[in-house]
Each structure stands twice: as structure tokens, then as C-alpha cells.
Design a protein around this nucleic acid. Structure first.
Lengths: 346, 346
DNA sequence: ACCAGCACTTAAAGCGCTTCAAATCAACAC
DNA sequence: GTGTTGATTTGAAGCGCTTTAAGTGCTGGT
């Protein structure tokens, strides 16, 4: 690549350099120190000064430079969030994280997981940005790795339980959630209730356990049936096709690891002409946006994304601004959301 | 909020302060200048020095502080990306943007649009991070606002045409894409082809125009039928229900603004017992992950997310490192992806 | 010996902002 | 007048890194 340009990070065209604190200070004939205080809302400056500074800053279109202030204050006021950009549930969490963070004066930095970007890269990026705490949405890394990471910056595991609990966790009781779903189906008269698994993560393990123990609790050990799967629509669909191809003894209800899987499952059924919930009931998990669509109208479990986001931010703030050092685990109670994809057995 | 803690941005627990350039320098008995050169791969330092520095840095677990280097170099090497976190298509773009940016030594900062976070906030956040260029995915702001923004930092509009073209645009020919879809349906024998609109944005306008003109081109003016909608699954579903409720003269094919809408549409049809593509064909736009699912198997239009991402990054680099100042518009040719949701009319 | 030329290194001046200790000032009490 | 006090304001020292002009040694040529 041949360098032709000036290398200057100039604005679009003939951009004037952005105004600095010093420019604002000069305009009102004060020191940069005073201007800094006013702009940050620190008590001290007189009302008159405050007004003049604010006016001058507005006139100049001054925007503080985060980079510089982070360096000087040794505080970035940034929370790093690791998300799976393909997950609707994460999208919802991020929405709420944004508002929760804003309320306490923090900003978010998002780092996404993709096919070519693993948890490690994502987290290192966050750290390079000097995020003060890391909110990891459904991390997959082993507990030991996360514990190690926690020594670099407070880590909050969102949605996933951590064995030794050496770091903060905000999650909902996944086993309970699936248990409620099974209870609901049993209440409708189902016995042959199958489960489409979510893979090897801790979250998947918990939900699977919830299914298993609920089935046993109802004395349906013999009906326990778990199909391999993961967190994608594709996995749900594959499971659906397997059911269809098997023909014979279809279960009367299927519970999926999450809504994405459930939607794949449901669509596969309907496409094969199998009525849901007429012929088979389907339930998901997460209560994500799609599950609410009338066309899917999926019975699912709400994890209360908003509350989880709020608690995660609170946990971070406690660590950062209130000196908490002992780990905390916050377990929310999930709640079943009954919609139209479940009904009595055929 | 009562401040209890030390306010120190300490790591999880008894965290040692992260090593600085100076620490590495001290360890090898060199100046920070030399270390900086080595670590940035600038030619100059001798091979021996290079090795020793690298070794020391590794041993100390040194990580450069972006914040500081951005400040010092007046270059952040950051590209700001504004995305709709609920859009599967954007998710795909982001994936490719990541790899494209990495290849040219830039990093991405994501700023999401949510119900409570508009384009303006998203962009200001990006600027506060000192992003050197702004890649806006499907921006909705008026051209004048974007042009104004372009004076602060080069703006690349991705996916959306800009009237006066005073800034860079990377997009695909939306009208052509929808045109191809209509041609395909006409080829299958359809005449009554309806369209579910995407709202008021420029992209929606272009696609709508593509539909209209293709219909006219085929002499089907009388069959032109446009239903109100937007970019969500919900809109598609509402449109689907409207068709179903109307009963009577259902079109034999429906083209939707995007895949999300198409999936809502298709699901609404199937749920109502209307076979797709048996009774009605459905087509979408974007070729996003869900459209490929066998259960939906949606005929759609590929915008080539990868190429768009690559071009967008290239455009930014040209602006930033190669001194280009005249705007460029790159229009890719979309390609129809025929799948199972379209077939001959009933 | 002496100097040019080359290959490395580094001192030092910031980048734009925050932080405090210290200075300034007006108002007051003696 | 003088000393005090509380309210404001500010000088100056960085934050951790980049950058550039200015070294420092060496080599080789003469």
C-alpha cells in the first residue's frame, strides 16, 4: 500500500481542528482547570462562571476528548460488553445495558463474537480500550480463565453460572425456567416431552438438567429424550426434521434450549405440515422479540433482560465505585410466558 | 449515590498496575522511544534490540494503552460503525467489517441504535471515541445532516444512496435487486405480485421503486399493490394477516422489503394454513442467515455483505491514509438467490 | 589521525485533559 | 487597619505513549 496522503486524521474535507479545552478557556478568559470543573459538573465554580463556560463551549461546539480525559483521570468510565452479535437475546440485553449504564454515568464498548473472533480477542479488545469492568454475556471460557481475567478487571458473567464463584454473576435460574415449562406442559396433559439441547456450555447444561429433573419429578423418566442441538435456528430445524423423518412415535411436546432453536423447530414442523400446537406443542426460552410474533406466538421463559442488565451494571458499579471486592451472585427467577405454541396433546 | 470506594479503577482484586512502556524499557535498559519503535514495528531498531524488547514485553505481559497512544499520535486507528443491533443483515456486515478492518490495521467501535438511542447519539458516541471515520449502516438522517457530519470525520454511507453524493457511499442497486425478483416471479408465471413496503427511508424508496418499475415494465401496472410495512418481522406478519383476512383476491406472490419482513409474512401465511409456495410465493431481500434456513428457504436477493464491508473499509482507508477527498459511490450489483419459497402460481 | 556516513538510540516536547496544592479575593470580625 | 475565613480560581505536574531533532558509536576512506 503506497502512502500518498498526509496521514493527518483530518475531517471529511477542510476540517478545522476540533476545539480543545484551552480554546474554551481562552474564550471566557479562564483557566482550563476551571473549564474542566464546570464541564464535568464538579462543584466549585461560581454560577456566573458556570454559565459563561457553558455558553462558550456550546458556541464553539466543544466536545471533550474521551481519550485525553481517560488518560488524565485514569478512569475511562467505560464498561466493556462481550456479545454475540447474532443473538436476539443479547441484542435485548445490550439495549437495557445502554440505558442502565447511562444512568450511572458509564458508557458501553461492545465487542462482538463472530466466526473469526473468539472470546479471547473480544475481551482483549475491551481491555485495550481500558474498559474498567467486563460484562460478558454468556461467556463460554472455563471458570479458571475468567477468574484469571477478573484480576485484570472486574468481570461480571451475565447469564452463566460460574462454578467456584470467584467473580460476579448475574443470571436467572435456568433449570427452574425449563422446569416451569415442563410443568406447564405436563399440566396440559403431555407426557412425551422431548428436549432439544443447547450444546456444551454451562447454560445449556443447566437447562438440560432442569428438563431432566422436572421429567423425573413427574415420574416421566421413560419419556426423557434429548436431541443434540445448539443455540441456533438451524439446530432447531435439524431437530425438527429428525422428528419428522422418524415419523412413528413423535413426542407430543418439544422444549427447546432457546427461542431461536424453538423457532427453527416450529418452522420445520409447520413446513412439514405438522400443526403446532395441534399435533405437537413447542416451547422456547428467552422470550426474545421473535417469540412474541403472532406467527410464532411461542410459549417461552422470560429471563427479564432488563433486570439482568440493570443488575449487571449495578454489580460493576459496586466494584468500581463502591469498593466491593467479594463476589456476588444474583440469581433471578425466570417466569414462564404462556402463548399459543403449546396446547393439550393430540 | 454515596461514594464509598477508593475510586481507584483497580482490577478485580489486588491487581498490580498494568506495566507501562517505561517498565519494559527499564527491563531491557533502553529508552521508551526505542521500545515504542519496536512494538509498533517501525524500522530502525536493530535486530538484537528488537528481540530483547519483544521478550521483555512478553514477560511483563505488556499491553499498549490505546488511549495514550491515540492521544500521542493523534491517530486512533478506529473506525466507528453505527449499527442496528436487531438487524441480522447488519450483524453480517459487522462480521465482515471486522476482518476487513483488521487487515488494514484498524479497529472497530460499534455504536448501536435502539429504541432510546437515535442516530445522533450513536454518532456522537463514535466521535467521542475519536473514531477517524464513520461507517453508517443504513443511516436514516437527511443527506444534509450527513454532509455536515462528513466535515467532522469522513462518513461512509453503507447500503443507502445519498442524493447530492457529497460523501462516500457503498451500496448495492436496490431497485435492480427487487427488479430481478419481480422478473423471476413473472418468469414463473405470476402476474398478481404484491409488495410489502419498508417504510420511509431511502432504501425503502429505492426498493419500492424497483418493484413499481419492474411491474410496469412487464405491463402489470394494474397489479401493482403496495402494503404498508417496515423492516421488521412484525410488519411482514401484519401484512400477511391483512392478506389472509381480506380473503378474496390474494396475490399469487408477495415480495417483501427485506428478509425479516418476508419471514414474518411467510410465517403468517403458513400459520393460517396457506401453503408457501403452493398457494402464494414469497420473496425477501438481504439473504440473511435466517433466509437460508430450510424451514424458510426464502428466495431473496444477496447484497454481498462481504464485498460491501470490504469496500466500505477501503473507502475509509482511502480517505484517511491516501488523501482522497472527492466522494466516491460504489454500487454493487445484487444477485437473486432462488430458493424454495417461490414457485409457479396456483 | 580525521572526517564523512551510516546505523542506532534517546532526550525532550508534547497530545488534551484532570488534579491539587497553592494563590487570590471579597467579606467579616476584631 | 489587620487577620481570618470561605468561596473561587489557577499553576503546574502529570497520565502513557509518539515523534523528531539530536546525539552516539562505528566503519571505512583518505
Amino acid at each position: 500500500m503506497d502512502e500518498v496522503g498526509s496521514g493527518a486524521p483530518a475531517g471529511g474535507n477542510g476540517a478545522a481542528p476540533r476545539p480543545r479545552l484551552e480554546d474554551v478557556a481562552a474564550r471566557v478568559g479562564l483557566s482550563t482547570a476551571s473549564v474542566s470543573l464546570v464541564l464535568r459538573g464538579v462543584p466549585g465554580p461560581s454560577e456566573r462562571t458556570r454559565q459563561r463556560v457553558l455558553k462558550a463551549a456550546a458556541e464553539l461546539g466543544y466536545r471533550p476528548d474521551r481519550t485525553a480525559s481517560a488518560l488524565a483521570s485514569r478512569r475511562s468510565r467505560l464498561l466493556g460488553v462481550m456479545v454475540d452479535i447474532h443473538s436476539p437475546f443479547h441484542a435485548e440485553l445490550v439495549e437495557h445495558l445502554h440505558t442502565a449504564a447511562e444512568e450511572v454515568g458509564y458508557d458501553l464498548v461492545l465487542s462482538t463474537l463472530t466466526r473469526t473472533r473468539d472470546e479471547n480477542t473480544a475481551v482483549e479488545t475491551l481491555l485495550a480500550f481500558r474498559c474498567e469492568a467486563l460484562l460478558l454475556l454468556g461467556p463460554v471460557a472455563p471458570a479458571s480463565v475468567l477468574a484469571e481475567l477478573d484480576r485484570r478487571a472486574p468481570v461480571i458473567s451475565v447469564g452463566r453460572r460460574i462454578a467456584g464463584a470467584s467473580l460476579d454473576v448475574v443470571r436467572s435460574a435456568d433449570d427452574d425456567g425449563v422446569g416451569q415449562t415442563v410443568d406447564h406442559l405436563v399440566g396440559l396433559g403431555h407426557r412425551a416431552i422431548a428436549y432439544v439441547d443447547g450444546g456444551k456450555g454451562v447454560i445449556a447444561t443447566d437447562r438440560r438438567r432442569g428438563y431432566r429433573s422436572a421429567m423425573r419429578r413427574h415420574g416421566f423418566d421413560a419419556h426423557i429424550g434429548i436431541l443434540r442441538g445448539d443455540h441456533t435456528e438451524e439446530a432447531g430445524e435439524r431437530a425438527g426434521r429428525r422428528f419428522v423423518d422418524d415419523g412413528g412415535d413423535l413426542p407430543t411436546a418439544v422444549v427447546a434450549f432457546n427461542d431461536q432453536s424453538a423457532i427453527g423447530l416450529l418452522s420445520a414442523f409447520r413446513r412439514a405440515g405438522i400443526d403446532v400446537p395441534g399435533a405437537v406443542s413447542v416451547a422456547g426460552y428467552d422470550d426474545d422479540a421473535l417469540s412474541r410474533l403472532a406467527a410464532f406466538d411461542l410459549t417461552t421463559v422470560s429471563q427479564n433482560a432488563e433486570e439482568q442488565a440493570r443488575q449487571a451494571v449495578t454489580a460493576a458499579v459496586e466494584r468500581l465505585d463502591q469498593g466491593r471486592t467479594v463476589p456476588r451472585e444474583i440469581v433471578l427467577v425466570p417466569s414462564l410466558v404462556v402463548r399459543g405454541s403449546t396446547a393439550g396433546p393430540r
